[in-house]
Design a protein around this nucleic acid. Structure first.
Lengths: 157, 157
DNA sequence: CTCATTTCAGTGTTACTGACATAC
DNA sequence: CGTATGTCAGTATCACTGAAATGA
């Protein structure tokens, strides 16, 4: 009828609802800004791990980036096709590939990182610096708790 | 190689990463516990809106629950098939349906709500009561900001 | 033999897009 | 006419499952 867009109290009282909604906004901002330069979240996550930990196997890459191994395979193939990463067989363990970032990949990572910094500002716009650090501190606490607890992990397979 | 599952600093410093990861844990907990009783998140969201705002049109239902109209159609059909909601044509505006919750739907909502309360406890386990209210307060601030700002909305269509 | 790694094909939820018919 | 509603079909991202082939 009218433009009443308030969620029911049953939802507003649930932290899972709040965090899912905020994550939804973050996801849409990310998809919009990354999509404008032809990138996806998996690309940034993969490049960030390669820059900090690579050369590395795809399995370890997935553990660092919280990605399933099958998704790592696809992301690395896409990055390699664009010359942003290289995939070569591991001679010391022939089950594995060794994935490394190229110079073009480092440039791409720098570009995407700047885009992401803009998104952070947009997402947290209404909060003061103190509130932002309080929020990130609490979220980091939850993350480290569940990373070491029995909570299901995305990279379990 | 070893079981190094630390994310790169480039990711850990991004609030979008933190909130997306926490949302991922919440999503997995929700999917697991709701799935055990044959429910999905859309079902709870729809029932919660119907209990608080219904009888209501599907378009308004979607605005309250932050759901796309096409997803509302599917969710209402599923709930109606289980006798948890009713859908009848609106005689005063023949474009619309009027959706309402049944007694079985209210019982189901109460069951799902208890499940969700358990999930909240599991998600926020490491935080004190003060920290929990600080976190939910900050998330709610972000939500109301983006709900009234130019940030893309899920129910825009 | 067991386990780990890579790859492939496919599923599921949520979110979203485009189209259509209908009706205000 | 433009706008809103409901429905349908299909897509995208991310997350995940199962299986196969290879090799430690």
């Amino acid at each position: 009828m009218t433009n009443a867009d308030d969620a029911p109290a049953l939802l507003l009282g649930k932290p899972t609802w709040l965090v899912n909604q905020v994550s939804g906004y973050a996801h849409r901002l990310l998809a919009t800004h990354l999509g404008q330069v032809g990138a996806r979240g998996y690309h940034f996550r993969t490049l960030a791990v390669l820059a900090e930990f690579g050369p590395i196997s795809q399995a370890d890459l997935g553990r660092h980036a919280q990605m399933d191994r099958s998704d790592v395979t696809a992301a690395v193939s896409e990055l390699a096709a664009d010359g942003l990463a290289e995939r070569v067989p591991d001679t010391s363990d022939r089950r594995r590939n060794v994935v490394s970032i190229t110079q073009a990949g480092r440039d791409r990572l720098r570009q995407l990182d700047q885009i992401l910094d803009g998104v952070q500002e947009e997402l947290l716009a209404p909060l003061t610096a103190e509130e932002r650090s309080a929020l990130t501190g609490l979220l980091a606490r939850l993350l480290s708790h569940h990373a070491t607890a029995g909570t299901p992990q995305p990279w379990a397979g």
